[in-house]
Nucleic acid binder design. Structure first.
Lengths: 339, 339
DNA sequence: CTGTTAGCGCATTCAG
DNA sequence: CTGAATGCGCTAACAG
């Protein structure tokens, strides 16, 4: 590992002061083109590479934005990340990714190290285990701006980028009803999470508006684990009659469907699932399944653009910049009316 | 964003020299416990947080290791990453992840920014598009140690952590033969990649050893894309007789299976697939499928431990530390003999 | 065991 | 437009 060339090496070789060299290499307008050319040529010749560590220390910025997601292997999140990366790279930012694995401790840990590493801003979809937001307040106070995505959080004027879960859920449930379903199970998630509350409400409201009674046994709450999915599947089988499932809980739903298959059981003819607008779903599901398509890459792009604007302070009131993205129902194959 | 407290603030408050403060906070053995306690108490009181940027500049280390994978959404890689993260965190290292998306340019870019950001070492599974290793040589010369994983590369004494692809492939093919298959298709990958060459050889050798003729039409090479998988599926259907498929190309295989299903076609009764020891496979595959289980999390742990040892220079000859991990066939459900 | 001194490499004052 | 001087916050020599 040979010694790196610094601006002083260039400075010495050219007998130009190092500050001018620094300015030239940062393309400052206050250096003549002539000397700029000279310096850039010499820099290339000596194989100069800026020491970002020093630069960061000096400016107290890192040109890096932090991303925290529950789990990168979830297709939705890796798509969002792609969107974020594209936008960030174009704007000259690097990106560092952390996964909370739905653990609060781990999320706190991650936020703390991102803070220590002076990322300029944070994009986060909070973990299910998160019970308070002290770590995020701390980041905002000592670090930089935050933008929430996918899982909306109310925290002062911090912006949220997400979908209208109530609306998507309502549409999904209504789709089943319009196809003749009456006994519709809802796979739900942890009710402390706003997103699942909203989805639940969408389901309930759709039933109400169509004069279908709401039955508690048909609302199955579970965590995002595979084991949970199997439990759900068993519960479904124990119910008197089920002609549709509306799931707002991807992981559990996949697992449940697998269980149905493995047992050689017939899966209800029409299922709507929120969130599977990706490869995984088409692998898992039967033809005839309907899904709610939520914009993933787009969500990343929007969240990331917004964060960068906030970092650069080119916008004023962040709260106004929360955004709700549209969703649409995707019918994988023509689903015929029942009954 | 209020001003951060530095070691000098503590120094002043306690009338202890700042270098002693620094030592105390780094838990140096050369400071008495008494003053350590004093300093730590004060630090907590003032809400001190070390400025890692400054520390990094001074030590010219970042306690961070870089990971480059083709794509984080591929289940195999996200599992490897989990393994890496666990090990790294335990050893006090942070981790930054980049995805090359199988693009050479992008990989070069990533290596370059990781180098600029002075990561202490690099774990990489090279992209399929990678045509030379100049960027990696450069990293080794100016950055730090490298450990390859999953996709073996011959580059001086740089260690490789992977599986024995030939052996795994041989076992998989032989498994089909022993179950009565004679007309076995091989889904292969880009033959410039050592891994796919090895797997191809395993397939060929198994056939030879069992006196089954090798037919070129039964060897189907493709890239790792979904469209490719559909092509493969069509080719399979055009062959006179197929009673088994051995795939060493996950992505294409999933896609092909989906195509078979969608068309309502029967999937050959027994299929062996390399690499699907994860959630995805059980979602996609039919009961009766056999897979080669390759250790993913374990691979991450081993690669990461090795890299950290190399960074700390606690081992001498890296070349000797390449490692080949064992694989095993997993039969998802008892597959009955055919014919 | 603790203090003194001196930078790491860069970017930003302030002069001129 | 360019130069001189200063320090970001920390750690590593080298003393004592």
């Amino acid at each position: 590992m040979k010694k790196k060339t610094t601006i002083h090496d260039i400075s010495r070789a050219l007998k130009i002061n190092s500050s001018t060299v620094s300015r030239a290499l940062n393309n400052s307008p206050r250096v003549s083109q002539k000397t700029k050319d000279l310096i850039q040529k010499k820099a290339a010749e000596l194989g100069y590479q800026k020491n970002i560590l020093a630069s960061n220390l000096r400016t107290n910025k890192t040109n890096t934005i932090g991303i925290i997601v529950p789990r990168i292997s979830r297709n939705f999140f890796s798509s969002v990340i792609s969107g974020i990366e594209e936008t960030a790279y174009k704007a000259g930012y690097n990106v560092v990714i952390g996964q909370s694995l739905e653990s609060f401790e781990r999320e706190q840990q991650l936020v703390s190290t991102l803070l220590s590493n002076r990322v300029d801003g944070l994009l986060i979809s909070v973990s299910m285990g998160t019970t308070n937001y002290d770590h995020l307040h701390n980041f905002k106070n000592n670090g930089g701006p935050i933008v929430f995505f996918d899982r909306p959080i109310v925290m002062g004027d911090t912006p949220n980028i997400g979908i209208d879960d109530f609306d998507a859920s309502y549409k999904a449930t209504e789709h089943l009803i319009k196809n003749g379903c009456k006994d519709i199970v809802h796979f739900s998630g942890f009710q402390k999470i706003e997103l699942y509350k909203q989805r639940m409400q969408g389901y309930i409201t759709a039933l109400k508006n169509h004069n279908i009674p709401i039955r508690e046994e048909y609302i199955l709450e579970s965590q995002l684990s595979e084991a949970d999915g199997i439990e759900l599947a068993k519960k479904v089988l124990s119910l008197p009659k089920v002609d549709g499932i509306y799931s707002s809980n991807d992981t559990a739903a996949i697992s449940a469907i697998q269980f149905f298959k493995k047992e050689g059981l017939k899966i209800p003819d029409d299922i709507a699932i929120v969130g599977f607008n990706n490869d995984t779903i088409s692998a898992v599901i039967e033809p005839g399944l309907t899904t709610v398509n939520q914009p993933d890459v787009e969500m990343g792009i929007i969240a990331s653009s917004l964060l960068i604007e906030l970092i650069k302070k080119t916008i004023e009131s962040p709260a106004e910049h929360s955004k709700t993205l549209g969703t649409e129902l995707i019918i994988r194959q023509s689903s015929q009316k029942r009954k």
